[in-house]
Design a protein around this nucleic acid. Structure first.
Lengths: 237, 237
DNA sequence: CCTTGTCGGATTGTTGAACAACTGGCTACC
DNA sequence: GGTAGCCAGTTGTTCAACAATCCGACAAGG
C-alpha cells in the first residue's frame, strides 16, 4: 500500500505535531497573562492591589490594548476582579469563596477517586505514581523547610488525584481552583507551616488507592478536605 | 437606634442594589460576547465557521479591539478556537471532546446528588422544585414539538441537578459544559428528536430524589449519561 | 505529476494616540 | 455638617497605522 518513504513521512508529521506548541504560537496577551498569573500565584502581587493599565503596561512593555486582553483572561479565571470604570484588582477572597472552593474540590476529587475503579490497571499505575511523586516532592521540600514549595507540591498532589478521572476538562478546572486557592493562602500570611501536617495524610490516601480501596480513599479525602477547609477559615478570622 | 428616615434610606439602597446590574454596568466586549454566545448556542453560527475581525466588527458595530476582547472570552469558554495569525472559528467538537464532556458532567452531577443528602430540608425542597420545573418545561415544549426548547429545558434540568450541591462555581462550570455540548448537538444536525426520550428518565430521577433515594438517583443518572453519550457518539459517525 | 520557490493580496498582531465617560477627592457655599 | 459643583486622573472605546503572517496562484524544476 504505502511506500516506505510515505510511511516515514507520516511518522514525522505525527511526531512534529506534538511539538507544534513549542514554536512560540502564542500571543503577547497570553504571555502577559502567564506572567501575571505566576506573580499572583507566588504571592508577589497581594490580593487587593490595583493594576493600573498605564503603569502595568509600561512595566511589561506592552500596549494598553494588549494588556486589557490579558486582564480579561485572568478575570475569567477569577484571579482578578474587574470593576467597571475603576480598574482591575487582584482578587480578595471572602470566606464564602473558600467554602465554595472546597465544596467544588470535594466534588471533583472524590468523584475522580470513585471513577478510578474503572481505569485499566496499567494506566492506573501510571497515575498513582504521579500521586506518589507529588507526595515525595512535598516531603523533600518539607525537610528543607521550603514551605512555599511544600504548598506547590501539595497542590500537585490534588491535581494528580483529580487526574485519576482522566478528564482534560476536570484537570483544567482543578488547576484553576488551586490557583484561586492560593489567593486564600496569601491573604492569611501567617501560614508558613499550613501545609506540613497534610503530607502524612496524603501518604495515607495514596496507600489506600494503591490497595484499590477507592471508597475508603474517597472518604478519607473528604474528611481531609473538611479539616483543611476549617483550618483555613479559622485563619481568615 | 436608626431614625425612620435613615431606615428608609437603608431600604432604598437594599432595593436599588439588586437593580445595579441593570444600569448597564457592563462593558461592550461582554455584551458582544453574550450576543455571540447566544448565536452559537442557538446554532445560528455553525461549528467551523470563521469569524473575521473586520466583518464581524462591522456587523456588530464595534471596533476591532473590543471585538478581540470578546473573542478572548469565548475562546476561554471553549466556544471558539483561536488559531494564531489565522483567526477565530466556532469550535468543532471531536469525539474525544464529547467523551470528556460526559465524563466531567458525570463527575459533577452524580457528585452533586451525593452532596444533596447534607442539604437542609427546606433548601432541598426549593432545589428539587427547580428540577421539577425544568422537567415540566421540557414536557410542555415536547407536546408543542419545539425540539430546540426541549433541548434548552433538558439542559436546565441538568443544571438544576448540579445546583443541588449549592456551589456557585460548580454551577458556572456546568453552564459552560452545557453550552459546549450544544456544539455537538448542532454538529449532528439530524437530531431533532434527540432529547425527547430523556424527559421520562428525568422524571424518574426527580422522583427518586424526592424520595430521598440519593444513591439510587446517582446511579440512575450515571446510567442515563452513559446512554446519552453513546447515542451522541453514534450520531457523530 | 508532484514538489518547491516566489509573489501579492488579505487577515491578523500590536501599537500609539485620541476622545468620551466615569470616578474620587477637593473646594466653596449654604 | 452636608451638599453641589468642579477638576485631575483613570478607564472605555475607537481609529489608523505598520509589522508579521497566512494563503492561494503561478511559475520553475525534477
Amino acid at each position: 500500500m504505502a511506500s516506505p518513504t510515505a510511511r516515514d513521512q507520516a511518522d514525522w508529521s505525527d511526531l512534529l505535531a506534538g511539538d507544534r506548541a513549542l514554536l512560540d504560537r502564542t500571543s503577547t496577551a497570553e504571555r502577559v497573562a502567564d506572567a501575571l498569573r505566576q506573580w499572583i500565584i507566588d504571592g508577589r502581587l497581594r490580593p487587593g492591589t490595583q493594576l493600573s493599565e498605564h503603569s502595568a503596561g509600561k512595566a511589561l512593555g506592552v500596549s494598553r490594548n494588549t494588556l486589557r486582553e490579558a486582564f480579561r483572561l485572568l478575570v475569567h479565571e477569577r484571579l482578578l476582579v474587574h470593576e467597571f470604570h475603576r480598574g482591575v484588582f487582584v482578587r480578595v477572597l471572602a470566606a464564602d469563596d473558600v467554602t465554595d472552593l472546597y465544596r467544588t474540590r470535594r466534588l471533583l476529587e472524590t468523584g475522580a477517586i470513585r471513577a478510578a475503579s474503572d481505569v485499566p490497571p496499567d494506566v492506573l499505575a501510571e497515575r498513582l505514581s504521579a500521586i506518589d511523586a507529588a507526595i515525595t516532592a512535598a516531603e523533600d521540600a518539607a525537610v528543607e523547610e521550603h514551605w512555599l514549595d511544600v504548598g506547590t507540591a501539595n497542590m500537585r498532589f490534588h491535581q494528580a488525584i483529580t487526574a485519576l478521572a482522566g478528564s482534560p476538562r476536570a484537570d483544567e478546572i482543578m488547576q484553576q481552583l488551586t490557583a484561586e486557592l492560593r489567593l486564600a493562602f496569601h491573604a492569611t500570611s501567617a501560614l508558613r507551616r499550613f501545609h506540613e501536617p497534610y503530607i502524612e495524610l496524603n501518604r495515607g490516601i495514596a496507600r489506600l488507592l494503591g490497595d484499590g480501596e477507592f471508597g475508603a480513599a474517597a472518604r478519607a479525602l473528604d474528611e481531609y478536605l473538611t479539616t483543611a477547609q476549617r483550618q483555613l477559615l479559622d485563619a481568615f478570622a
